[in-house]
Simulated assay, not measured.
Amino acid sequence: MKLIVNADDFGYSPGVNTGIVDAYKNGIVSSTTMMANMYGFEDALKLHKEYPGLGVGAHLVLTSGKPLTNLPKEFLDDNGEFLRRPIYLDDQNESIERDWLDGELIYKEWKAQLDKILDAGFNVDHIDSHHHMHTHEQTRAAAKKISEEYKLPVRSSYLDEKYFNSPDFVKLDGDGLLSNKNTDKQKFVELFDHITSFEIVELMVHPAYVDFYLMDNSSFNTARVYEHMWLTSDYIKGLLKERNIELVTYKQFK
């Protein structure tokens, strides 16, 4: 079977970028998704030029950093940055409707973010979003429009199946296991045994080295170091080899 191990948040900060690239060089990460509006964008661009084999998608943002377009004040906090995730999604990832959440404005902002990534020279092969905001009931149409316009697949079970790479394509969230230093190794055996029952799987991960920007701006910070630890471990690399799991990127399915 084929496995895409996608590290979200490329471009968030230099520490995040370095952790992702190291998990690609020395671990099982095969793909990442880029944030166009964040502090570490230029640093990520430099790093990727050194490692062009790392697959790159667009990580569309509506809940971190500053927008690239002139959005109304309702989208922003007092510092001119995007409002955070709890404004839009509850603890069960259910959509919270906001009457000012205009789909056309979101489309223009996300298009500007994607265009910035493309203009920088990245060969974008798929789309997802920070905090899964493209799954929000009021943003799905914008994500679908961009997917159609740029002919890029989207990570989401909310969009029509034709936007997937395969009917058997599934997404798994690795954060719960990988972000725990003391995870029972048997849990990883169960995870990868489960993965082999599908044709194609994307495992979503968040490896990083911690820097000041990550600590100051994200509540999910030090746990990312443990994700890096597991993703580069000989143990997990051995599990993939034993099960004949092939690491790939979205490029193989465009």
Rank of each mutant, 00 (worst) to 15 (best):
A44H: 01
S30R: 06
K66F: 04
D22L: 13
L54P: 06
G55E: 08
Y24W: 03
Y39N: 15
A36F: 10
G40N: 03
K49D: 09
G57I: 09
Y39H: 15
L62C: 06
Y24C: 08
S64N: 11
D77L: 08
L68A: 04
S30W: 05
M34I: 14
K46S: 05
G57V: 11
M38Y: 01
L47V: 10
T69Y: 03
H48P: 11
T33D: 12
D77P: 11
G65N: 08
P67A: 00
Y51F: 15
I28P: 14
G27E: 11
D22V: 10
M34K: 12
N70S: 15
G27S: 13
G53R: 05
I28Y: 03
P52A: 11
N26T: 10
P67I: 00
Y24A: 07
F75R: 02
L47C: 12
P72H: 08
L71T: 03
E74P: 14
E74G: 10
N26V: 05
D43W: 00
H59M: 07
T63A: 12
L60S: 10
S30D: 10
K73I: 09
S64A: 13
G27N: 13
P72V: 08
I28A: 13
Y24L: 05
E42R: 06
I28F: 06
L76I: 01
A44D: 01
Y39R: 14
M38S: 08
G40K: 04
K73F: 05
P52F: 06
G53S: 10
A23F: 02
Y39V: 13
L47N: 13
L76V: 00
H48Y: 08
A23L: 06
L54H: 02
M34N: 13
L45M: 02
E42N: 11
M38H: 01
G53I: 03
L76M: 02
K46I: 04
K25W: 02
V61R: 00
V56T: 12
G57S: 14
L76A: 03
V61Y: 00
L45P: 05
N70K: 15
L71V: 05
N26C: 12
K66V: 04
V56D: 07
G57K: 12
L68C: 04
K46Q: 04
T32P: 11
M35Y: 02
T32E: 03
L76N: 05
A58I: 05
K25T: 10
N70E: 15
D77M: 07
H59E: 04
K49G: 14
M38L: 07
H48V: 09
F75K: 02
T33W: 09
F75V: 04
F41S: 09
N70I: 07
L47R: 14
N37Q: 07
L71K: 07
Y24V: 02
T63F: 07
G27Q: 14
K49H: 13
D43G: 02
F75A: 07
P52Y: 06
F41E: 04
Y51N: 15
E74M: 11
L68I: 04
L68N: 06
L62A: 11
G55F: 04
E50N: 15
L54C: 01
D22P: 07
A44P: 14
M34Q: 14
L76Y: 01
